[in-house]
């Protein structure tokens, strides 16, 4: 009786995974083309309303509008108060802000 080798099973598995990788790449292209209208709408809305930040975290002012936040905002409650909003750990101040701030002031 013909018996399928274990290596054949593994090769089939590898080829299927690679085919899914190719499908994933195609899905990225298709998804980006499909979402173009939505992305353009978001960009035009941001331009029209002069929006400066994405709506990612609504729990605190400085996480809702991180680019508009004062440099010392996370410590506003007390000079040595620790960050207490979970999303604060995802947002760090850009280096350039600090540098420009120092340059100007």
């Amino acid at each position: 009786m013909f018996k399928v080798r274990k290596s054949t099973y593994y090769l089939v598995f590898l080829v299927s995974c690679l085919a899914m990788f190719v499908a994933m790449t195609l899905h990225v292209r298709y998804g980006q083309a499909e979402a173009k209208t939505g992305s353009e709408y978001r960009a035009s809305l941001a331009e029209k309303l002069m929006i400066t930040d994405l709506c990612l975290f609504t729990e605190a002012r400085y996480t809702r509008h991180p680019s508009m936040a004062d440099l010392d905002t996370p410590f506003q409650d007390h000079p040595v108060s620790l960050e207490h909003f979970p999303s604060g750990s995802f947002v760090s101040p850009p280096d350039f802000t600090a540098r420009l701030h120092e340059l100007i002031h």
């Binding site: 930040d53 990612l56 680019s67 750990s89 101040p93 850009p94 802000t97």
Partner: peptide, 22 residues
């Protein structure tokens, strides 16, 4: 305090930066 567009964009470059807590 003037905030430039490049700084706004850089803010989102640093969101989820690997140095962030989580």
């Amino acid at each position: 305090r003037p905030i430039l567009k490049s700084e706004i964009l850089r803010t989102y470059d640093s969101v989820f930066d690997w140095r962030g807590g989580m």
